[in-house]
Computed example of a mutant assay.
Amino acid sequence: MLNNSPFQAAAIVRSRMPANFQPRVALVLGSGLGVLAEQMQDAVAIGFDELPGFPISTVHGHAGQLVMGTLSGVQVVCLKGRGHFYEGYGMGVMTSAVRTLKLLGVEMLFVTNAAGSLRTEVDAGSLVVLNDHINFLPGTPMIGPNDERFGPRFFSMANAYDAELRKLLQATAADKSITLHEGVYIAYPGPNFETPAEIRAFGRLGADVVGMSVVPEVVPARHCGLKVVGVSVITNLAEGLSPFPLSHEQTLKYAAIGAESLIKLILAFLENVAKTPAPKA
């Protein structure tokens, strides 16, 4: 039986949209990054608890709201918070939410998250644009019956993090004198932090940053044809690379520091998006 939650949620969102509102960009705001939604003009917020298929977050720093409005002249939809595999929802924790965004007509998904760095030169407060990922979660969101209304059974992940959008983001960062590293994200189930041995193994696999999210959004986004751009805010060096013990408090503290640069970057990126014509439906 196919899940109609995305259609039900999209209908609710449309009923609350401002007049002539057509979002181009969707943003997923990770730990400590929800402050960006507060900068939106003419914002309308809807709690995840009002939207069928949306996860109710149990994590401090994830508000659980869909907020729509205008940023840098672009109409956007923000997910202020997200669901995680470790909360017990399963790998499909974000699939309905992402499909709802697709039904609302967005052309790209900009995912942000807090992550640990496997490179000592990329320390807390740094920004890393993602160019690929390694999925260390148990399975993928697409396990089970395929919903042909959104995409094919088998689909490519070759350009999961869109190369053109990444170039635009890198050019934007250079123009604003923001240091933007590039790397591969590895998804770890959590909620415990990784062991030093796991971090050493991940480094040998080719990972640059590690976190507990992103993949559950990116896979369904690519399945339904959304372009993806992703940025990790580094909150710590990964376990075994620093003498400091890891904690969620530390994550929120450095996410807030990195968020300052990320907000500046996203606002400038959206200005550049506004200069490009929206693709024809």
Results as ranks from 00 to 15, higher is better:
residue 34 G to E: 04
residue 91 M to I: 04
residue 143 I to Q: 15
residue 76 V to N: 06
residue 46 I to P: 03
residue 142 M to T: 13
residue 178 I to D: 03
residue 17 M to A: 15
residue 17 M to W: 10
residue 121 E to D: 14
residue 204 R to P: 03
residue 232 S to G: 14
residue 153 R to T: 15
residue 122 V to Q: 04
residue 182 E to R: 07
residue 280 K to N: 13
residue 193 F to A: 03
residue 176 K to M: 14
residue 202 F to D: 05
residue 8 Q to R: 02
residue 70 T to P: 03
residue 7 F to P: 00
residue 26 A to L: 05
residue 134 I to H: 10
residue 229 V to T: 13
residue 151 G to A: 08
residue 37 A to N: 09
residue 242 S to D: 15
residue 279 P to I: 12
residue 170 Q to S: 14
residue 171 A to K: 05
residue 55 P to K: 02
residue 59 V to F: 00
residue 37 A to G: 13
residue 178 I to F: 07
residue 166 R to F: 05
residue 87 E to C: 01
residue 157 M to E: 05
residue 249 E to S: 14
residue 213 S to F: 05
residue 257 I to P: 03
residue 55 P to V: 04
residue 16 R to I: 00
residue 27 L to Y: 01
residue 174 A to N: 09
residue 261 S to Y: 07
residue 79 L to W: 00
residue 45 A to K: 10
residue 68 M to I: 15
residue 117 S to P: 07
residue 56 I to Y: 02
residue 107 E to C: 09
residue 4 N to E: 04
residue 178 I to K: 04
residue 261 S to H: 13
residue 39 Q to G: 12
residue 118 L to E: 05
residue 14 R to T: 08
residue 89 Y to I: 00
residue 90 G to S: 08
residue 234 I to T: 11
residue 98 V to R: 01
residue 17 M to Y: 09
residue 143 I to G: 09
residue 42 D to G: 14
residue 67 V to L: 05
residue 276 T to P: 00
residue 69 G to K: 12
residue 8 Q to I: 01
residue 207 A to S: 11
residue 244 F to M: 12
residue 110 F to C: 10
residue 192 N to A: 10
residue 235 T to W: 08
residue 54 F to S: 02
residue 137 L to I: 09
residue 38 E to K: 14
residue 33 L to K: 04
residue 57 S to A: 04
residue 72 S to P: 08
residue 265 L to G: 10
residue 200 R to C: 09
residue 48 F to Q: 07
residue 269 F to Y: 09
residue 238 A to Q: 07
residue 194 E to P: 01
residue 61 G to Q: 07
residue 268 A to C: 08
residue 171 A to H: 05
residue 127 L to V: 13
residue 245 P to H: 04
residue 97 A to I: 09
residue 184 V to K: 04
residue 177 S to P: 01
residue 254 Y to K: 10
residue 6 P to W: 01
residue 106 V to S: 02
residue 78 C to D: 07
residue 171 A to W: 00
